[in-house]
Amino acid sequence: MSNRKTVVVGMSGGVDSSTAAYLLKEEGYNVIGVTMQIWQEENECQMQAEGGCCGISAVEDARRVAEVLDIPYYVMNFRDVFQEKVINYFTAEYLAGRTPNPCIACNRYVKWESLLKRSLEIGADFIATGHYARIRHLDNGRYAIANSVTAEKDQTYALYGLTQEQLSRTLMPIGDYSKPEVRKIAERAGLPVAHKHDSQEICFVPDGDYAAFIERDTGRKMPEGDFVTKDGRVLGRHRGITHYTIGQRRGLDLPMGERVFVTEIRPETNEVVIGTGSDVFTDTLKADHLTFMGIEDLPMGEEEHFLAKIRYNHRGTGCLVKRTGEDEITCTFDEPVRAVTPGQALVYYRDGYVAGGGIIGK
């Protein structure tokens, strides 16, 4: 590859993005490392302790890797767009009784839209990340995210919202390797983060307490309300709807004599609906905010069979996807799926690549 091609690598300070930068430099690219500063104002001690992909420790680790690789390194400020497109979205969805995936919004609007725009402005040809996914240029001329070589770390689900322009300007070198292989490459390259632990939680809620974060962010304490059955019988009191998600069993504190689960959240009446295990299974859902990736479109009334995921760690279930509205598809699964959750993404695949997706409504 000609070294005249320039790629900006989004470096989180972790082993995956660091190894991506190393591999691209080895291929002959002119590599520039960039860490996206996305978190809001905090004191230095708090940022150092929380780390994640946007704290001070991430910047320090990424800078050390850039020094080892002898590549230029910069920190770019994307706080405003992160607040608008990720944090505000996250909070609004929970208040509306839905369960969002903020990583999907961050990928679409921050890690790609904003970073790609800034990178092109400084003369780069591509951006790259350390995601476990690959990009395929299909026979129909479209670009699509395709499964990585390792199902354990596959991250295609969270990337379904990327546009054709973004995909045509993106490199994903990590998708050809397993996690142990990536660590070995990093170790051989002398990267100081070769054995750094992966971050597990949402970066802006490192303690995993979403409800407490929402109360801090909004300045509002969520009101208590009723736990009810599907037909409206009151079972007890809940702590506020932001504490719950579909399929949840733990933390309900309801003496029912059997396992019970959250089956619905009703923000308009401030009720959380409780049911049995069989109540959390369904074979149909509707999705909107449609995105088409590997296929150009699905015409009104037409239907096709795909493999679909309803959450990040869902292995996938066969389904029939039918276009039922201008911005709506109806998905009928080959067998019932558990805990279909409004606000999460429906992502459907064909032959190992993402065909399209949308946000689950019902």
Rank of each mutant, 00 (worst) to 15 (best):
K85C: 11
D61K: 13
F78W: 01
Y94T: 08
E60D: 09
E84K: 15
E84L: 14
L95Q: 12
P72R: 13
E93H: 05
I87N: 01
I87V: 15
L95P: 02
V75G: 10
K85R: 15
L69D: 02
G52L: 08
V75W: 09
G51N: 02
F78D: 03
F82H: 14
N77R: 06
T91N: 07
E50V: 15
I71E: 05
N77A: 00
F82A: 11
E84S: 13
L95C: 13
R64D: 10
C54Y: 08
A58E: 06
V68C: 05
Y74I: 15
Y73P: 00
N77Y: 08
E93M: 15
V59E: 00
G55Q: 00
I71R: 05
C53E: 00
Y94D: 08
P100E: 07
A49T: 02
A66P: 06
C53Q: 13
E67M: 04
V86I: 13
F78N: 07
F90T: 01
M76K: 12
V81M: 11
R98F: 04
P100L: 10
S57L: 03
A58Y: 04
R64Q: 06
S57T: 05
C54Q: 12
V68Y: 04
A66M: 08
L95S: 07
V75S: 04
Q83V: 09
E93G: 01
D61I: 07
V81G: 05
A58C: 07
V86Y: 03
R64T: 11
V81N: 03
